[in-house]
Design a protein around this nucleic acid. Structure first.
Lengths: 246, 246
DNA sequence: GCCTGTGAACCTTTTCACAGCA
DNA sequence: TGCTGTGAAAAGGTTCACAGGC
């Protein structure tokens, strides 16, 4: 069993962290994980703002659009560099450019989805990935009855060919939508084929070696967390911890 | 526009937080958010262990199964109470019972899904919600062509009837799977109909009043975060921050 | 001897508050 | 005057290390 090498939605181990490695593309400063997780929010907010032909934006306005607070926006953006103008705000186009560069959205990332069940199919059809450079190019499933099936303009490939197709398409990011039982094995095979980022929807603990990142999305867990707070509200408590949503 | 009242996956505002409210069901201590987010992991690990007729489990073993470290497990469980036995470990059945009580999994939560597109349909068909008390009872969509459509054993209801059906079914938890543009309006209507927990899949900032919790799952954002670290690995960096995955 | 429970140390993240510059 | 950029303070979360009970 593997031990290390995954990225979590939450904060990570401090002791195990290698410092001074995660610097900006221009090698200036290290960007905290919490900040990285918010950059996509700013990106989206700026895209919407840019479409409205607005030239500059204040940290306050950006905060509102991204669903965070202004202090956070300023701190976060300061990690990228001093891109704002005091007394004025941030240039929308320029900031958008810098953030998309940091996030690697200026290039294309070919993506593979493994597990073409309900969820896998939904993800395969999801417009919104493609939008920002994430092109789903490969669909893989273990069920022979599904192999060859057409979904959108892709045809489902057998898991026996995983290694080959992943290499052929130069897949760097894999989406795992298999049942829990298959998750670890599929993750191992993806990594063996050269995948170094995995988005895991399978409701299972699953680990990858160092040098590979993995993020987990677990729908049942999200509901259980809501249930916790729901329960307390229902039984006489008040509101849960809060902040505007991003 | 609303301002407050949402729960985030990440840590929340401290200044805005009401302390001493989130105590255990037995009103003993406050449970930190980070701990609440891990309880479902322990729950799942214990369920799997319990099925194998194991009577007790050590923090180390539980940590391994949940994908966290042993110190965290002990700290987390200590917030619930002193349910372990020194020198021995935790009684699987008892701990399972306590955690499911804390998480509100001993009762049923009727759930409504709004937005029956690709994702909404996948969620509607997803077995694994039902498993732990989350029963999808209502499917809602704005598209007249979809209304009346049968999915599983449910029939899609018009958004015009949202208020009525949500009240009739006593829905407390709503799942938002609409396009971004509709998210805020639908959230408002859900809240107005009495929903106090929302799981939001729409790629949009969306806020709810105090007393309502909201968690966000954004697929595009997850990919963008992976892309950030992927980019740095590709350009000569080393592994990203790490911890075994939960 | 073994494993839990927990204060204390440490690290990360958030927030505050204001200096500094257009 | 207005808004950014950033040290410093505060809060939250994680890890350590060991006392304490089985």
């Amino acid at each position: 069993m593997h031990k290390l090498g995954t990225l979590q939605a939450g904060p990570c181990s401090a002791a195990e962290r290698r410092k001074d490695i995660w610097v900006t593309a221009s090698s200036r400063r290290r960007i905290p994980e919490a900040t990285v997780a918010r950059l996509p929010l700013y990106y989206r907010a700026l895209m919407e703002t840019g479409e409205r032909q607005v030239a500059t934006i204040s940290s306050e306005r950006l905060a509102e659009l991204a669903g965070v607070n202004a202090a956070k926006v300023r701190k976060d953006l300061s990690y990228l560099g001093s891109y704002g103008t005091r007394g004025v705000g941030y240039d929308v186009e320029y900031l958008l450019h810098e953030i998309s560069r940091e996030l690697g959205l200026t290039r294309d990332w070919p993506v593979a989805i493994v597990g073409i069940g309900n969820l896998g199919r939904a993800l395969a059809n999801y417009r919104g990935f493609g939008a920002r450079g994430f092109r789903v190019e490969v669909l893989i499933d273990a069920d022979p009855a599904l192999v060859g099936h057409q979904i959108g303009d892709l045809s489902v490939v057998s898991i026996d060919d995983l290694d080959r197709v992943v290499r052929e398409h130069n897949i760097a990011i894999g989406i795992l939508a298999t049942p829990a039982g298959a998750a670890q094995e599929v993750a191992d095979r993806l990594v063996a084929a050269g995948v170094t980022s995995i988005l895991n929807f399978a409701p299972a603990v699953c680990s990858v070696p160092e040098g590979v990142s993995m993020r987990k999305v677990d729908l049942a867990i999200e509901l259980q967390i809501l249930s916790f707070y729901q329960l307390r509200r229902g039984t006489g408590g008040t509101a849960p911890p809060r902040e505007r949503t991003g």
